[in-house]
């Protein structure tokens, strides 16, 4: 099995389930007229166009575009991922942030549980930005020392959280779920700092790798 095949599968796997990813990829490879082990970077363009009709069934246009742009970058040497920064404006950005967090963890060789933790933290913080402000940014930094860790920094210029103390103590339950999400996020992290004011909110959350 070629490494290009593995890369393709792991990319698809971040957008759709394993079984769907395998089926769709197998079909595209058949249509190109090659075998699984022959897949190389030279086939990527052709495979991408064969994959598209199937992927349309599973992905929204925004997610499809994001997958296709990632497809384009397979095989190109990439700089070691030390940090990423993403703008969070629309709902689709949350999915992109999650996928990128997972990608970064995988490149660091993180355990599955760590990937799950970080991606969940990213998902929660990105959704808070999307739901409670007009947009913001989400950054993920990797620090190798003193211990390997990933820090997620979420910054927005929304109206701030007025009842933060109540939320963190568990005295507040919102119908939209902000309370449980933010308390849960804190429990997933080694370190969790939140600063909020009417000018905006900044959250820094650290997960050990």
């Amino acid at each position: 099995m070629s490494s290009a095949y593995d890369q393709l599968l792991s990319l698809l796997r971040r957008y759709i389930s394993q079984i769907n990813a395998q089926n769709i990829l197998a079909r595209a490879i058949r249509e190109v007229g090659i075998e699984k082990h022959q897949v190389s970077e030279a086939h990527l363009g052709e495979l991408a166009s064969k994959l598209e009709p199937s992927l349309r069934l599973f992905l929204r246009p925004a997610a499809l575009a994001s997958l296709q742009s990632e497809l384009g970058s397979i095989g190109r040497p990439s700089a070691p991922l030390e940090s990423i920064s993403l703008a969070i404006k629309q709902e689709a950005d949350i999915a992109t942030a999650r996928a990128q967090a997972r990608d970064m963890c995988e490149k660091l060789g993180a355990r599955r549980m760590t990937i799950q933790k970080l991606a969940t933290v990213v998902s929660e913080l990105a959704r808070n930005i999307y739901m409670y402000s007009h947009g913001g940014t989400l950054e993920i930094h990797h620090a190798a020392s003193p211990t390997s860790s990933l820090t997620v920094r979420a910054v927005d210029s929304g109206p701030g959280i007025t009842n933060l103390d109540d939320i963190m103590k568990g005295n507040y339950k919102s119908r939209t779920g902000l309370g449980a999400g933010i308390r849960g996020t804190k429990r997933l992290c080694e370190r969790f700092d939140i600063k909020t004011s009417p000018a905006g909110t900044t959250v820094e959350a650290e997960v050990a790798v």
Partner: peptide, 13 residues
């Protein structure tokens, strides 16, 4: 939910 790789508080809700 076999097809989901992540369930956050939003999805739980």
């Amino acid at each position: 939910v076999t097809g989901l790789w992540l369930i956050d508080s939003h999805l739980c809700a």
